[in-house]
C-alpha cells in the first residue's frame, strides 16, 4: 500500500549466472585467455579471472592486458594448486584436502585471493590439530 514500486529479487540469480559461466568455460564458449600453469593449458574468461583475483585484476585491467591471449605464469603456482582455484572462481566451492591444501594456499597467495588464503589457513590449522 503506498509503495513507490516493487522489486522482485531472484535470490538464485548469482549462482545461476555462475553456473552458466562455468558451462561456457567447460564448452570453451567466449573463453578469451589460455593460462599455462605448470605447462598445462587452462581456458578461462578474463572477466571472471579479474573479478576473482587481485593478481589478474592488476594484469588485465590495464591496456597491457588487452591483447593477451596466452598467459604463462613462470615461477607461478603448480597446476594442482591452481586448478581448484579456477573451479572455485566458477562454482564458489573450493575443494581442499590435507595433501592439496599447501599447493592451493601457495596458488591463492600468488593470485592475491586473500579470503581464500585465510580459508586455507583455517583448514590447515584444523586438519593438523591432534
Amino acid at each position: 500500500e503506498g509503495a513507490l514500486g516493487y522489486v522482485r529479487e531472484f535470490t538464485r540469480h548469482p549462482s545461476d549466472v555462475l553456473g552458466n559461466l562455468n558451462e561456457l568455460r567447460l564448452r570453451g564458449i567466449l573463453t578469451d585467455v589460455t593460462l599455462l600453469v605448470g605447462g598445462q593449458p587452462l581456458r578461462a574468461h578474463k572477466a571472471v579471472l579479474i573479478a576473482c583475483s587481485g593478481f589478474f585484476y592488476s594484469i588485465f585491467r590495464g591496456r597491457a592486458g588487452i591483447g593477451v591471449e596466452v598467459l604463462s605464469l613462470p615461477g607461478g603456482p603448480e597446476a594442482r594448486g591452481f586448478a581448484p582455484l579456477l573451479d572455485f572462481m566458477y562454482t564458489s566451492r573450493l575443494r581442499l584436502s590435507p595433501a592439496t591444501a599447501p599447493a592451493v594456499l601457495a596458488a591463492a597467495t600468488y593470485l592475491q585471493m586473500e579470503h581464500v588464503v585465510q580459508a586455507c589457513h583455517r583448514f590447515i590449522q584444523t586438519s593438523y590439530e591432534p
Binding site: 579479474i50 573479478a51 576473482c52 583475483s53 587481485g54 585484476y57 572462481m89 564458489s92 566451492r93 575443494r95 592475491q112 585471493m113 586473500e114 579470503h115 581464500v116 580459508a119
Partner: peptide, 22 residues
C-alpha cells in the same frame, strides 16, 4: 569412490572488491 566430502559453509566475503570508480 571419493569418500565422504564434508562441506563447510563460508559466510564471509569470498573475493576482492573491485574499487568503485573514484
Amino acid at each position: 569412490s571419493e569418500g565422504l566430502v564434508a562441506t563447510v559453509k563460508e559466510a564471509g566475503r569470498s573475493i576482492h572488491e573491485i574499487p568503485r570508480e573514484e
